[in-house]
């Protein structure tokens, strides 16, 4: 196998042509950059528009959900108020066999209302009274 031979000796030597102007190759890198920028801007614009629309749809969806939750909130408050209706509670209480006590029992709490006494002492006394209740 033989190596390729050098042809350097065959190439004509460079020479300066007097009076000739230098021909510049057009620099396409700027145009590529400009084109790229235009494409990016175009797609960016489309993307931002899509994002905007998408966000708007999300907002619309959220607003609809808020409205639904608000409705639900008021419906639940309504139901809660219904549940707390004294007439309904009275029926429930009766069904449980509960009734207002026929006789009233007074609790004698001597330490309550006497501010001069030590609060800890009053609290201990009160606890003792409360724990004695059936």
């Amino acid at each position: 196998m033989s190596l390729p031979q050098s042809h350097a000796g065959d190439r004509p030597s460079l020479e300066v042509i007097p009076g000739a102007t230098r021909k510049l190759r057009p620099k396409i890198s700027h145009w590529i950059l400009f084109g790229f920028a235009v494409i990016v801007a175009f797609f960016g614009l489309i993307y931002s528009r899509i994002s905007l629309d998408s966000s708007a749809f999300e907002i619309q969806e959220l607003e609809a959900q808020i409205a639904v939750q608000e409705d639900l909130h008021w419906q639940l408050r309504y139901e809660l108020a219904q549940i707390q209706d004294p007439a309904r509670l009275e029926i429930e209480i009766a069904q449980l066999g509960l009734e207002y006590p026929a006789e009233r029992i007074g609790l004698s709490v001597p330490v309550v209302g006497i501010d001069q006494l030590d609060p800890d002492y009053r609290w201990a006394q009160l606890k003792a009274i409360l724990s004695a209740q059936p």
Binding site: R104, G106, L107, S108, V109, P110, A132, Q133
Partner: peptide, 14 residues
């Protein structure tokens, strides 16, 4: 007005 106190609640009983 005075209502019948519950004797069990008297602190002296504790």
């Amino acid at each position: 007005l005075g209502v019948a106190p519950d004797p069990g609640a008297e602190p002296d009983d504790q």
